[in-house]
């Protein structure tokens, strides 16, 4: 048991060393992503849900905003200078923050849209059920709804037959 736990710690340490090594060798990229993904980090910090829907929503779009600049860094010159050049460009900020803003917008608008769709679907279903109820009452009379069985047909039928008896033949 103890040896198992030690192994896991050792594995984590090895992966940590590799990741740290990787970060050391890709520092300009880390710089772009670190700066560009700030809204995501902020979203992560305020996201109280275990499922981290806010982080996913904002992070996904934020990443799309950051990705072109990372690729640009990699394809042109993977250096601090280039990274600073990119960060110095306002368009870069507009892209990265704009994408994150779109993520936030999706996150804010979606529940309203979903609520609307949900309400429509429920109302349709209620209408369908009410129609079925009306059909049942039309076919079986008000008694089927469990109300008092006062059926207009009965009184009219009585009146008809009384008339017959009054003038038989």
């Amino acid at each position: 048991m103890a040896s198992g736990s030690a192994n896991a710690s050792a594995t984590k340490a090895i992966f940590g060393m590799i990741a740290l090594g990787g970060l050391v060798f890709t520092l300009p990229t880390v710089l772009i992503i670190g700066v560009g993904m700030t809204p995501t980090i902020a979203a992560f910090m305020i996201d109280r849900r275990r499922e981290k829907y806010t982080t996913l929503c904002v992070g996904g779009m934020n990443f799309v905003g950051v990705l072109p600049f990372v690729i640009k860094l990699w394809s042109e010159d993977h250096s601090y200078d280039k990274a600073f050049d990119i960060l110095a460009d306002p368009f870069t900020w507009l892209s990265m923050m704009g994408a994150a803003a779109i993520g936030w917008a999706i996150y804010i608008v979606a529940p309203g849209v979903v609520a609307m769709a949900l309400a429509m679907r429920i109302e349709q279903r209620i209408s369908s059920l009410r129609r079925r109820q009306r059909d049942l009452v039309e076919e079986w009379g008000p008694g089927v709804a469990g109300s008092a069985e006062v059926e207009p047909e009965e009184s009219s039928a009585d009146a008809d037959t009384d008339a017959d008896v009054g003038q038989p033949g």
């Binding site: 929503c57 799309v64 949900l118």
Partner: peptide, 24 residues
């Protein structure tokens, strides 16, 4: 229907995450 906002809240977040994931 009366509680649709509560129902839509979590579902909306899920939908937002999915939409965002797909768009991303």
């Amino acid at each position: 229907l009366q509680n649709k906002d509560i129902l839509a809240s979590e579902l909306g977040e899920q939908v937002a995450a999915v939409v965002s994931g797909v768009v991303a």
